[in-house]
Design a binder for these strands. Structure first.
Lengths: 204, 204
DNA sequence: CACATTAATATACAAGTGTATACCAATGTG
DNA sequence: CACATTGGTATACACTTGTATATTAATGTG
């Protein structure tokens, strides 16, 4: 803890908020310039360096924040699941609903995974991997109750579901609001296909 | 046909080639600047306007070219399919193999679908939709021989396979070459899950 | 050979970028 | 109260960008 020197008039979180103000359906985080962000934050360009090494460091911090949000959303979705049969529907609907809320950080994770620097891409991949891993443990828990999936296939199943949900989420974001329900239903069906396919084919 | 005036020293195709020279694993097409492209093409910046309205028009032309390549790849893959049982494996392996060839335009379709202007995104979506539609007719043909999928679900199945293959392709592109085989195998398995899931669950 | 027509270039400008250097402002400590 | 320490700003510089305007180069036609 620092005890001497001028107090900071702005913190990293506020700079992140300023950056988030600038992103939108057609504005990606990795295209933000340092000066744009400082303008939005109301500070001088050079003040940025007091908080982040460069814009890439800011972008990675934002991804990690979005990852945190993702995790709380997952946790909340779990509390909504009443019976085992509705787990897919409730989870997907919760995901799509949260994603569509104005100001949500989820779209960042969905849209920006494939462009930008290596470290940036790795940061996003880390969050997706977390999501897939979380899903895998769920599948293994289900497997412990009644054997459904081949043990060495749970990770592939989890990855497939993750990729599909994120891809369909990206589509929903680029589609008119009126298509949201339809896209959600399609995604529910797709996930069910994967789970059913993996459970019915315990051996090749 | 023009009969009078100075002959063009460069054509649109050559400008497209110059742009393709600049894209790579960490350089997206939508981040190219007009001047970069003209520099690579060996022409003056303003000469660009003789061939394209702006960089977005160039990007869309590139997407359409990549779409053409995609279609020939699909067509070629079909000729490789010897028996019905190997259709998934052969198709996925062909796709991943073509995608990994140096200078392939497929990575552009995989990576850039989620950023850029509206028209640009629409252009990519059009190519993915084509792919999905092609796949749907294949499923319907298979259905005609022996009923496997619910008739109103073939499009969803095709969409799911498309999104999954493209998403996994994107992952493969951002992973070390040594992981390519593993990712390909995973994708084959995932697609089989979807098809099996959709065929085993003819009614909900 | 003019001449219209088309392509390409040269020059220039305003705007934006990242960042280096230097300086000012505020704060707790001795 | 000095003073070191830290945060913030001002100014400046070298670049890059898109594009407007004007000019030059090459070509077929009359």
């Amino acid at each position: 803890m620092k005890t001497v020197g001028r107090k900071a008039s702005i913190n990293s979180q506020e700079i992140i908020s300023a950056a988030l103000n600038l992103v939108g359906p057609h504005r990606s985080i990795s295209s933000l310039s340092l000066r744009e962000v400082t303008r939005e934050a109301g500070i001088a360009p050079n003040s940025f360096y007091r908080h982040f090494k460069d814009v890439e460091a800011l972008n990675i911090a934002i991804i990690e924040l979005a990852g945190k949000h993702l995790r709380t959303i997952i946790r909340d979705a779990r509390t909504l699941i009443i019976n085992e049969r509705s787990v897919v529907r409730v989870s997907v609907e919760c995901f799509f609903s949260e994603m569509s809320k104005p100001g949500s950080t989820l779209p960042i994770l969905l849209r920006e995974g494939t462009v930008g620097s290596g470290d940036f891409q790795d940061a996003i991949k880390k969050q997706l991997d977390f999501f897939a891993h979380e899903l895998q443990t769920d599948l293994e828990k289900a497997n412990a109750i009644s054997k459904r999936y081949q043990t060495d296939e749970t990770l592939v199943v989890a990855k497939a579901v993750t990729q599909l949900v994120f891809a369909m989420g990206g589509i929903a974001l680029n589609s008119p609001e009126s298509d949201l329900k339809k896209t959600t239903e399609e995604t529910v069906l797709m996930v069910k296909f994967i789970l059913k396919g993996a459970s019915s084919a315990k051996t090749e």
